[in-house]
Amino acid sequence: MSTLDLTAHPAARAGFSVALMRIELRRLLRNKRTMIFTLVFPIAMLLIVNSTIPKDQQSMGPGIVANVGAYLMVSMALYGVVMAATTGGASVSIERASGWSRQLRLTPLNPTAYIMFKILSALVLAAIALAAAYGVGAALGIASMAAISWAESALVIFLGATVFAAFGLFMGYLIPSDNVMQFVGPMMAILGFLGGLFQGPVDTSTVMGTIQSWTPIYGLAQIAHWPLTRTTAGAYATFDKWWIVNLAAWGLVFIAGAVWRFRRDTARV
């Protein structure tokens, strides 16, 4: 009996490619809702709020290089980035609801490679949101701070995006819907408020401030703003280890949740 020549059909590798990423990004960037929450809204807020800051109140404090505009820019960039990362991660929900993930199971793309691809595309979208807010802040002279502070704060925001990509995945797997951002979007806005993105530094001596310090965006927001405390002498304000505890704890919850739901989802056979 003859058999099929299997050497002509090698098993494919994980199946990731640049072409795939290009399609995925085009798809994310074409989504009006995503664009409004990750780019338009943060930048509009940056411009509007900045225009209300009086010229004589631009200083963050004696000896501090960064101005209030820089503080505002970091807040809004962080908001856009967190939204972008969550949206990117949560898009697994749409793909599951539409049956696309089932279609993908008929291809060599393995589930782990798929999830890595979703995280990567969420991070690319986050990087675009970050670059847009920082670009506007720099180009219009809204933000001014030490060169190292630009780099440090941007790096913190970008790394923090991974935690929210995991959050998005977790929500995407948890909520079976073709429009998961309908639920997650407002939730992120509330978390943004609680995390202190729409105010000045959070006063943790108050009850409200204490509550805020337990919410998911708080830790990341504090760490991202910390480089802005750099003085002309190169000194920084005290770093509160709680910020790291907050970010790491929520990060673990989100990653564990995403892994748990992902395993459940792929345990089908």
Partner: peptide, 13 residues
């Protein structure tokens, strides 16, 4: 190996 694939009834797009 890409030897077999399917056209599903609904969804999947």
């Amino acid at each position: 190996r890409g030897l077999v694939t399917a056209v599903m009834q609904t969804g999947g797009l």
